[in-house]
Amino acid sequence: MSQTSALVILIAAIFTNNILLTNFLGMCSFIACSRQIGTAVGLGTAVTFVMTMTTVLNYAIYHFVLMPHRLAHMTFIVFIAVIAAFVQFVEMFVERFSPRLYFALGIFLPLITVNCAILGASLFMIIRQYNFVQSVGFGFGAGLGWAVAILLMAGLRQKMRYSNIPEPFQGVPIAMVVTGVLAMAFMGFAGMVSIQ
């Protein structure tokens, strides 16, 4: 088990090992929802919350249910079920207490269920053998990292609306190119801290 402190993991998950910009997970909603800063903030917050909570839940289920009964082969399907149920719960909660955010996120809130970054975070936690505190740090950091990435992207795309982009590159293509440039920029953080 790695001995890195949870705080270091948190920082690393945002900058050096950004789940979106180094692992390219969660690209579909990243591209689809990064047109406006408001929506990006909403979705980023929701993803951060869901990611932190599901890492915690999945940590508990993995270590207290799956491992003792030698059910490690069930990890994927169990994690997906937990994530799906949790997103349903968050949807109900947001609908009740923040209808405005609910309507702003619209279809993308239930789509968090199939956001691969969420499942990815839970799986990295298992592969990298984090303990509980490290897992919380990683889940929260990975979520924040994803939120930071989509927020940067939304800002860039709002600016790009006024730039003269060649016609074949308008829309998704330029978004992909910009994502690549953004990922390269994040490589500058690589030497700072390292989690594999």
Binding site: I61, V65, L71, M74, V78, A81, V82, A85, Q88, F89
Partner: peptide, 13 residues
């Protein structure tokens, strides 16, 4: 175990 998990998740929901 998977059945039990889904049933309890459904109950919570």
């Amino acid at each position: 175990s998977f059945g039990g998990l889904t049933v309890s998740l459904a109950a919570i929901l």
